Amino acid sequence: MMQTYDAIVIGAGVMGASIAFHLAERGLQTAILERKVTASGATGHSSGLVRMHYDLAAESELTFASYKNYFGNWKERVGGECGFINTGFLQVAKREHEDKLRGNVANQQKIGINTSVISAAEVKKLFPDLVTEHFDYAAYEPDSGYADATLTTNSFLDSAKRNGATLIQNCEVTAIHTTGGKVTGVSTTKGGFDAPIIINAAGPWAKHVAALAGVDVPLVTWTHDVAFLHRPPSLGKFPAVIDDVINCYFRPEGSALILAAGEDESLRGEAPDAEDQTPTPTFVDKLIDAMVQRIPKIEESGLHSIHVGRDGITPDQRSIYSAAGPDGFYLACGLSGTGFKTSPAAGASMVELILDGKPKTVDITPFRFQRFAEGKLIEGEYGYGHIWK
Score class of each variant (00 low, 15 high):
6 D>E: 12
9 V>N: 03
14 V>G: 05
18 S>C: 07
28 L>P: 01
34 E>I: 04
34 E>K: 01
35 R>S: 02
38 T>E: 10
44 G>C: 07
45 H>W: 04
59 E>H: 13
60 S>Q: 11
62 L>W: 08
63 T>D: 11
93 A>H: 09
94 K>M: 12
107 N>F: 02
119 S>C: 02
130 L>Q: 06
132 T>M: 08
138 A>W: 12
138 A>G: 13
152 T>N: 00
157 L>Y: 05
176 I>C: 07
188 T>R: 04
192 G>D: 14
210 A>N: 04
236 G>I: 00
244 D>A: 11
245 V>D: 00
249 Y>L: 03
250 F>D: 04
260 A>F: 02
264 D>R: 14
270 E>K: 12
273 D>N: 14
276 D>C: 15
286 K>C: 09
291 M>Y: 10
299 E>W: 05
299 E>G: 01
302 G>E: 11
305 S>C: 12
306 I>M: 11
307 H>A: 08
308 V>W: 00
308 V>C: 06
312 G>L: 09
319 S>W: 07
324 A>D: 10
325 G>M: 02
332 A>T: 00
340 F>A: 02
350 M>T: 02
350 M>K: 00
353 L>Q: 09
356 D>N: 13
360 K>A: 14
361 T>K: 01
367 F>P: 00
370 Q>G: 15
374 E>Y: 10
388 W>H: 10
